[in-house]
């Protein structure tokens, strides 16, 4: 069970993280470490989760942390390539209504 995270800077204020693998209690801290610094001074953070096989509630916790941090500076968190399973999880938790979701490219 592993996760790999790649960063792509679209511009100073727009950042993209591409996440691959499983995001659970063991790997969520790695995602948090990469994601949180981007949220501090970006306007938009795209999180490409199209290659995420599994995300549990700890992973959702990281998304919520990122969402809150961006919201504090009028920024946006955008999820890209959400799987049906993750989509269901986001709907149940009500997060689908506050976090922007875009179809995968």
């Amino acid at each position: 069970m592993n996760v790999s995270i790649q960063e792509k800077s679209d511009s100073d204020k727009v950042k993209t993280l591409i996440v691959e693998g499983e995001v659970d209690a063991f790997t969520a801290p790695q995602l948090r470490e990469k994601l949180m610094p981007l949220c501090k001074d970006s306007r938009e953070v795209y999180l490409d989760v199209s290659k995420v096989d599994y995300m549990d509630s700890t992973g959702l916790g990281v998304l919520i942390g990122a969402y809150k941090s961006l919201r504090a500076n009028q920024g946006r968190l955008i999820l890209v390539g959400v799987s049906p399973r993750l989509s269901r999880l986001l709907k149940i938790t009500g997060l689908a209504e506050i976090i922007d979701i875009e179809d995968g490219a």
């Binding site: 919520i64 969402y67 938790t93 009500g94 997060l95 209504e97």
Partner: peptide, 9 residues
Amino acid sequence: TRGLVLGVS
């Protein structure tokens, strides 16, 4: 049901 998890907003 609809409703956001506790503790977010």
